[in-house]
Amino acid sequence: MADIPVASRRRHDLLLIASDAWRSALDRSPAMAELPFVRGWVERGWPVILRRHAEAEDNDLVAVGLPLPPGAGRHRVGLLLPSEAILRVRRPPSLRAAAWVVDPGRRPTVPALLQFGERYGVEPAVVGSLLWHHVTGLPYLTPASDLDLLWPVRRLGDIHPLLRGIARLQRDTPFRIDGEVILPDGVAGNWRELWNADTASGDIDVLGKSLAGVRLVLRASLSPVGSDA
């Protein structure tokens, strides 16, 4: 897969970073450098995640982050890197690729999620604990972990049946399915909030997130023109 162009990059994209740039960033953040795993993170070939800039952070630099596993204190590391530090950019791995780390008690749900995604041409991707367990092999998953998924939709008309299907799967699943639906314009909304808005009688605002910031997504804007879906 080719690298993702800068203009098409999204929150949750995974970045491989040059070792010398990583060392330089940690030299400027010694407290983070002392956290478990962080100093040798990129030398192990592990990616960092693209995140939104915090207030007052330099927008000319790339904002990246990584969470540490529960056994290492659940610290969240946030750093700024020059664009030339990025060696490669990839979308998060698919649920199909990461299914091997799903614990046996939850594994029977994976085929249902994949089949449901195929019905609407949506390949669910993994984020959260499942993502990090998959890419690092470290013990991020616990019995209390949610199953965090991204559902990138190509057409507005797919959003409503997608939300209904996720809600049905959640009703039949003993653990929590979390995550976001990524709208065609790249803005992402929490699927539960979108579902609540979709089933409400009025026009409810949902917080949409992208690298550019946050904005309100109205229920009416989730339907294509002329659609009653």
Rank of each mutant, 00 (worst) to 15 (best):
V77T: 13
M1P: 07
N190D: 15
V64W: 02
P69L: 15
D178A: 03
G117E: 00
P224W: 03
D60F: 00
F175Y: 13
T142G: 04
W41R: 10
A63K: 01
A188R: 00
D20Y: 03
D20P: 04
S221G: 03
L149P: 09
R23H: 15
I177M: 10
V135H: 05
P108Q: 10
P47I: 09
T173R: 06
V127E: 09
F175N: 08
L162Q: 06
L194M: 13
S94T: 14
G186I: 00
L194P: 04
W100M: 09
P104V: 06
D27A: 15
P224A: 15
N190K: 13
A7Y: 00
D20A: 12
P69F: 08
E123R: 01
D158F: 00
L141V: 09
L114R: 01
G40W: 08
L68R: 12
R176A: 09
R192P: 02
V42C: 13
L138R: 12
L149F: 03
P70C: 14
A98S: 14
R23P: 02
W100C: 05
R74W: 07
S129I: 04
H75F: 13
W46G: 15
V135T: 02
V122T: 01
D148M: 03
A167N: 12
L194D: 10
G73H: 12
G202S: 15
G78S: 13
L222G: 06
P174E: 00
E43V: 06
T136Y: 03
V214Q: 14
V101L: 04
P82V: 00
D158E: 11
R39W: 08
A200G: 11
D148G: 07
G71T: 13
A18Y: 00
N196G: 07
I177V: 12
T199E: 10
P67E: 12
L131V: 10
A2N: 11
L138S: 08
L81C: 02
P152H: 07
R90C: 08
R10K: 11
A2F: 02
P93Y: 03
I182E: 14
L216N: 12
V89K: 05
L207G: 05
R96V: 04
W46Q: 14
R215P: 02
V102K: 02
T173A: 11
P104C: 00
L150V: 06
L211W: 01
A33D: 14
G78A: 14
P143D: 04
L211I: 04
A200C: 03
A197E: 11
L169H: 05
V102R: 00
R44A: 15
R154M: 00
A112D: 15
L222I: 04
P67K: 15
R119F: 02
H133N: 15
V48W: 12
D205W: 02
R28G: 12
V126T: 07
V127R: 11
L207M: 14
P111Q: 07
M32Q: 15
R119Q: 11
L26D: 11
P224Q: 14
